[in-house]
C-alpha cells in the first residue's frame, strides 16, 4: 500500500500566492489565468483509496493539459470533479483507464495506481485495465446494435459468459441494476438508438456494469439529458455506489452536491482544492474555489 500522504506532495508554487485566501478581495491576473502554480488545498488523499494519482502531468503535443495533479479516489465513494470548461477534468479522468492512449500525441506522466498497481507500467494490459475501470461518456453512445447486444458486447468480447444462460443473466441483471430492465424488457431486439436519450445513457451504464468493473468513470453523463432523465441517472449513481467506486465529471455544481461525497475543483489544468462535498460548497478554502462555487467565475 502507499504511504499516507506526506510532505513530498507539499508546496511547489510561488509562495507569494498565499493559498489560504478565502475572503481575500482580489485575485492576481496570474492566478485567474492559472499561470502560477497552486498548492492543492484540502484532503487529496483517501483512507481507503482504490485509485491513487500522484503528480500526474498530461501533455497534448506541446500543450500541458494537466499540471501536477495528486488525488485519491476512495473505495465505494463518488467523487465529483468540477471546474470551468477546459480546466482538464475530462482529460484527468481519461487518464484513469488509459483512454488518453487512443489520442495521437497524448503523453501521460506521473504515478497512477489502481489497487496499488501502477496502471501505466509496461506489463499492464490496457484491455484488462479498461475492463476493471469502466467509462460512461458525455453523449449517450449506444452501438448500432440491439439493446441486448449493446449490453452483451462487453461480456462477449471479454469472454465473461460461458453459456447463453450466463450471458442472459449478465445482460438482464445489468439492465436491472441500471434501472432499465422494466422499460426495455419487451424491446430487447430493437436498436439501442431507438431508446430515448436518458434511456440510452442508462443503457451505456448497463453496458459498463455488465463487465463488472471496480471503478466507473463518468464524463458529464447528464449534460445531454433533460432534467427528468438527469434525476434518474443521479438516483442510479447513488445506488451504484454500493458496489462501485465512481468518479464523475460534471458541469453542474448542484449535481456534484447531490451525488458526491467528495469534490475536487480543477482550474486551468491544476487541482485547486479537494474536500468533502459540503465543505467545498459551503466553506471553500481557496479563493478560486469560492469564486467558482459562488458563480463569480466559470
Amino acid at each position: 500500500m502507499l504511504k499516507p500522504m506526506d510532505t513530498q506532495y507539499g508546496f511547489i508554487g510561488n509562495r507569494s500566492h498565499d493559498p489560504y485566501v478565502a475572503g481575500r478581495d482580489t485575485l492576481s491576473k496570474e492566478e485567474q489565468d492559472g499561470e502560477c502554480i497552486f498548492e492543492t488545498v484540502g484532503e487529496v488523499t483517501s483512507p481507503d483509496p482504490i485509485i491513487s494519482v500522484r503528480n500526474c502531468n498530461v501533455f497534448y503535443g506541446d500543450n500541458q493539459a494537466i499540471n501536477n495533479v495528486t488525488l485519491d479516489v476512495g473505495r465505494n465513494e463518488v467523487i465529483s470533479l468540477i471546474g470551468p470548461s477546459g480546466c482538464g477534468k475530462s482529460t484527468f479522468i481519461r487518464c484513469l483507464n488509459r483512454m488518453n492512449d487512443t489520442i495521437e500525441g497524448a503523453r501521460v506522466e506521473g504515478d497512477i495506481r489502481l489497487d496499488g498497481e501502477p496502471i501505466y507500467a509496461k506489463e499492464v494490459d490496457p484491455v484488462l485495465l479498461r475492463a476493471r475501470v469502466g467509462m460512461v461518456f458525455q453523449k449517450p453512445n449506444p452501438f448500432p446494435k440491439s439493446v441486448y447486444e449493446n449490453v452483451a458486447y462487453g461480456a462477449r468480447i471479454h469472454g465473461l459468459a460461458r453459456s447463453r444462460a450466463e450471458l442472459d443473466e449478465i445482460v438482464f441483471s445489468s439492465l436491472e441494476r441500471a434501472g432499465l430492465y422494466a422499460e426495455v424488457k419487451s424491446r430487447m431486439d430493437e436498436p439501442g438508438t431507438s431508446l430515448s436519450g436518458g434511456q440510452q445513457q442508462r443503457l451505456c451504464i448497463a453496458r459498463t456494469i455488465a463487465v463488472n468493473p471496480e471503478v466507473i468513470l463518468m464524463d458529464e453523463p447528464c449534460s445531454a439529458l433533460d432534467p427528468i432523465a438527469t434525476a434518474k441517472i443521479e438516483d442510479l449513481i447513488e445506488e451504484l455506489r454500493q458496489n462501485f467506486s465512481i468518479a464523475i465529471v460534471t458541469h453542474s455544481m448542484q449535481q456534484a452536491a447531490r451525488v458526491s461525497q467528495r469534490t475536487a475543483y480543477f482550474h486551468m489544468g491544476q487541482l485547486v482544492e479537494v474536500g468533502a462535498t459540503d465543505t467545498v460548497f459551503t466553506n471553500p478554502i481557496h479563493r478560486l474555489t469560492e469564486d467558482y462555487v459562488t458563480g463569480r467565475i466559470g
Partner: peptide, 25 residues
Amino acid sequence: MSEESPSNSALRSSVETRKRVEASL
C-alpha cells in the same frame, strides 16, 4: 465490495471477472 453484489453469482465477482478476461487475452 463487489462480492456482495445482488445477483450473488460467481459471474459477479470481480476476481472471477478478472480471471476470465485474462484468460481471453
